[in-house]
Nucleic acid binder design. Structure first.
Length: 593
RNA sequence: GGCCCGGUAGUUCAGUUGGUUAGAACGCUAGCCUGUCACGCUAGAGGUCGAGGGUUCGAGUCCCUUCCGGGUCGCCA
């Protein structure tokens, strides 16, 4: 039978003992990692979240029935009392931090028995994730997972520490809030009292934190769950945690410097890494043109080169027509790597860029015995030599070209660039490359909706000089928006917000809202802006992504205690699940067949 | 919604061109062992080859459907 504590108190964690404690009577509690049974002498490795302490059970020392020790199994929860003793010279275990000592057990309590776990509680087991997630409580016992959640906790603590010291107030905003058009799909919560009406779980506390600025809180933060009902990815979960920040009486520079200070503080506290400030700032347009991405990984080169002007009038109709239609032709030169791309691998890369909408990809191989390429025959000698000069092509290089609308060219080459870096091992995994991407466009055109949508969100302020262009030239209007990028991942983004009703109405109008629709959806904000709103702005960091990157984890699931799988369900709790008819009735809901 | 990858003892995997009774390691069970720490030794149990259908004399293997997990495009203000 399981026993109770009956007044026993744990002295300390398993690994908080050293040779200084030899002779001390201690009480330890934890899980049985392994048992090595010699009959009248049994060793047990006792595990807690800090590590392992070896217990020695000697028949002549242990009080009570010794057969209880032989009955111990992995993952039993036990409590033991006895003295810390020094190990003999020849029995020292150098692999354990506590390998010089062990606990000579005088008393044993079996607090809880355990079934044989479906997988071993070890770091080196490569158990399939499906099973790990079903038994997440066991998976989380593994030292690697314990470490991940520890570091995550340290990141949150460092952020809080910095924000507290800099005058930010931690204020909670509701989880049951108003559904907002624009942006991601909402998770809806039916109202029992107002049948047919729904709360939405927040995609972000955006409007509420702005209202806190209007209320005069000046500096706000919250480490807060956000919800978006969109498809999952390796770095995307339907519920995730933001470090959400907002400040008043600030412009872009103020927000960036305050927040890069926080990031530097986190890196120092958690990783003991000094981040050089200020962080580099890269305008959006440059990020796209040089890296084909608004979240460039700057740990390696392979930058894009625009060759549109050179190929515009060549005999290669694909390129010339693309340019006539307003597109571009850009190239990546992979220096000295021509021998690493057999024809079959080039074909695979052509298929790769097609994922991103490219219709094809051209290349030039600068071989020792001459140029090989499917396209150079279309060029005159002059055109070819200008091209070679522009892309700095030398013997041994291989150059890839994509021509299409800019969006497709950037997308295809931006992703090709990452693929090439991975293939050629160009990325130094020990480096953390942080930068700001700034000067985003305010709008982007949605082919699907046939209108402009907000690139960041509808509360983002245009640049002062662009206010007049919002309606006349939406594509040429830039925003006071910024993203922070770490190793090619967006770990945060924000903006200076619109702080007058007039401009906010104008923005919503530019997005296609009628005045009535605007007030119906955002009336509370438009109204609040009338009563003295300070200029304000802020940012939100993805805590999960930050933790994932600092830990070098391949998936965001590795830093979330209870994540969801790709179909947005939880394998442990089986959520979501059907509910009782009575619950539906109370909500006035019917499930259609 | 599209594309790609995977599913074989509890776990991780092997399984040849379709061919006898589907194997290994670890784990598990029982026994022995007073210095192990990947303990050792002896014996043993353990399989709906994800599921359903089809082709075939014969299917873990080939085909179709489907379920589950992963990656990704779309989507993610």
């Amino acid at each position: 039978m399981s026993e109770f504590l009956q007044g026993w108190k744990r002295t300390d964690y398993c690994t908080n003992f050293s040779t200084d404690d030899v002779g001390k009577e201690v009480t330890l509690m934890g899980w049985v990692q392994t048992r090595r049974d010699f009959g009248a002498l049994i060793f047990v490795d006792l595990r807690d979240r800090t590590g392992i302490m070896q217990l020695v059970f000697d028949e002549s020392v242990l009080e009570g029935d010794f057969s209880r020790v032989g009955a111990l199994r992995n993952e039993y929860v036990i409590a033991v009392k006895g003295p810390i003793v020094l190990r003999d010279e020849e029995t020292i275990n150098e692999k354990l931090p506590t390998g010089l000592i062990e606990l000579r057990v005088r008393e044993l309590k079996i607090l809880s028995r355990a079934q044989t776990p479906p997988f071993e509680i070890e770091d080196d087991t490569s158990v399939r994730e499906e099973l790990r997630l079903k038994h997440r409580y066991l998976d989380l016992r593994r030292p690697a997972m314990q470490h991940n959640l520890l570091v995550r906790s340290q990141i949150a603590a460092a952020a809080r520490d910095y924000l507290n010291k800099n005058g930010f107030l931690d204020i909670e905003t509701p989880m049951l809030t108003k559904s907002t058009p624009e942006g991601a799909r909402d998770y809806l919560v039916p109202s029992r009292i107002h049948q047919g009406s729904f709360y939405a779980l927040p995609q972000s506390p955006q409007t509420l934190k702005q209202i806190l600025m209007i209320s005069g809180f000046d500096r706000y933060f919250q480490i807060v769950k956000c919800f978006r009902d969109e498809d999952l990815r390796a770095d995307r979960q339907p519920e995730f945690t933001q470090i959400d920040i907002e400040m008043s009486f600030v412009d872009v520079d103020d927000v960036l410097s305050a927040n890069e200070g926080m990031i530097a503080h986190i890196f120092k506290q958690v990783m003991d890494i000094d981040i050089k400030l200020p962080l580099p700032r890269l305008p959006y347009r440059q990020a796209m043109e040089r890296f084909g991405s608004d979240k460039p990984d700057t740990r390696f080169g392979l930058e894009l080169v625009d060759v549109s002007d050179i190929v515009a009038d060549t005999g290669f109709a694909v390129f010339s027509s693309v340019i006539k239609n307003g597109g571009s032709v850009r190239a990546i030169n992979v220096k000295g790597a021509v021998d690493q791309f057999a024809r079959r691998e080039i074909d695979a890369l052509v298929d790769f860029v097609k994922i991103y909408g490219a219709k094809g990809m051209a290349w030039i191989s600068m071989k020792e015995d001459g140029i090989q390429s499917p396209i150079t025959k279309f060029f005159t000698d002059d055109e070819l030599s200008s091209l070679i000069e522009r892309i700095d092509a030398e013997t041994g290089d291989i150059i890839f070209f994509v021509g299409d609308k800019d969006k497709i060219v950037f997308d295809a080459l931006g992703n090709l660039r990452l693929k090439l870096a991975e293939k050629l091992s160009l990325i130094d995994e020990g480096v953390f490359a942080l930068l700001w991407v700034v000067d985003f466009p305010l709008f982007e055109y949605s082919e699907e909706e046939k209108r402009y949508t907000a690139m960041h969100h509808p509360f983002t302020s245009p640049r002062d000089e662009d206010v007049g262009k919002m309606e006349s030239d939406p594509a040429g209007t830039f925003a006071k928006a910024y993203d922070i990028v770490l190793n090619g991942n967006e770990i945060g983004g924000g903006s200076i917000r619109i702080h007058t009703t007039e401009l906010q109405e104008k923005m919503l109008s530019a997005l296609g809202f009628s005045k009535e629709q605007a007030w119906e959806s955002f009336g509370f904000l438009l109204e609040a802006l009338k009563y003295g709103a300070p200029p304000h702005g802020g940012i939100a960091f993805g805590l999960d992504r930050l933790a994932m990157l600092l830990l070098g984890c391949p998936s965001i699931r590795d830093v979330i205690a209870f994540p969801k799988v790709q179909n947005a369900s939880c394998l442990m709790t089986q959520a979501p699940s059907p509910v009782a008819a009575k619950q539906l009735m109370e909500l006035g809901l019917k499930i259609s067949e």
